[in-house]
């Protein structure tokens, strides 16, 4: 697609280049060592200090993976920041600040990366799957849904005028095992929030504190147009479960999605409203596709004609 990717697959889409993109979980990156990953069709390296400062740069031959390095001594770097559990970088001119998650700083929350898993699909397909409640009883049977309770109750979708983020509110779904601590089925309340083209956050009613919400994020690193890595961000109020137990639960759910999203064709998300047939419960996806068009996103999507 003209204007989307260069001859070597590198991204040429200004709207995507100028975003902040996650490249790895801080906790999983050994400090002062070069880590190599891919972002937007290019090889990108990064390193973090033990204090949580970072540097990121286009991979070069004198700093191969595993080489000890003082991140603050690297020159010719890209913008980078450590925030919300991850190292973020940008191949363009990113905004000064990124989105806010005030709940993250509440002292009694447990914040950690549940997993980072690579997926053979585009970043927007991964976001859209995360946004979809309709598949719960079929793909996550016994966990996030169960037949015959397949109804997606009508919900609201709006774009916040100040932040230009998408919010889907008053979502409800009946779930047999909504979380790692659930012992019985319950009606669960959801709020979805899409902060940037490849980052989405879910607020979910919290079994341990009924007046508050657990946060589950999917921050997607588009390694190419048709492949991505999903970073699963958790910010939970749960002092009972072990982190290992919660991670197994989340990794199970994530892996259940893989055969579905990897078999969606085309892998890039079509933005033409006529390209795929939505149903009523897809209102959030419809809004997401239109919003991507409005932002000028052409990478990882098939733009509307």
């Amino acid at each position: 697609m003209a204007g989307t990717a260069g001859a070597n697959g590198e991204c040429q889409n200004r709207a995507v280049l100028d975003q902040w993109h996650p490249v790895g979980a801080i906790d999983e990156a050994e400090p002062n060592v070069v880590h190599v990953t891919r972002l937007l069709g290019e090889s990108i390296s990064f390193a973090v200090t033990p204090e949580g400062r970072s540097a990121a740069w286009r991979t070069r031959s004198d700093l191969t993976a595993g080489t000890p390095v003082d991140p603050e001594s690297v020159t010719g770097t890209l913008p980078s920041r450590c925030e919300f559990l991850y190292v973020w970088t940008s191949l363009g001119d990113p905004p000064e600040g990124s989105f806010h998650i005030p709940e993250f700083f509440e002292p009694d929350r447990r914040n950690f990366n549940a997993c980072t898993l690579g997926v053979y699909t585009s970043a927007p397909r991964a976001v859209e799957n995360f946004l979809d409640m309709g598949h719960f009883p079929f793909v996550h049977d016994g966990y996030l849904g169960s037949e015959p309770r397949t109804e997606v109750v009508d919900y609201n979708v709006h774009v916040d005028g100040d932040t230009n983020e998408i919010w889907a509110t008053e979502c409800q779904f009946w779930q047999p095992a909504a979380s790692a601590t659930a012992t019985e089925g319950q009606m669960v309340e959801y709020i979805y929030r899409i902060m940037q083209p490849y980052s989405i956050l879910l607020y979910k009613s919290c079994p341990a504190a009924p007046e508050r919400m657990d946060l589950i994020g999917l921050f997607v690193q588009a390694t190419s147009e048709e492949h991505c890595r999903g970073h699963m961000f958790l910010s939970l109020i749960d002092d009972e479960s072990s982190i290992g137990h919660i991670r197994r639960f989340v990794q199970t759910i994530f892996a259940q999605d893989l055969p579905i999203i990897e078999n969606q064709n085309p892998k890039r998300l079509p933005l033409d409203p006529q390209a795929e047939t939505p149903i009523r419960s897809d209102r959030a996806s419809i809004r997401y596709r239109r919003w991507l068009s409005d932002l000028g996103v052409t990478y990882g999507v098939i733009p509307a004609a």
Partner: peptide
């Protein structure tokens, strides 16, 4: 393992 977990 390469795709899911970036094995080298």
């Amino acid at each position: 393992l390469c795709v899911n977990l970036e094995y080298d």
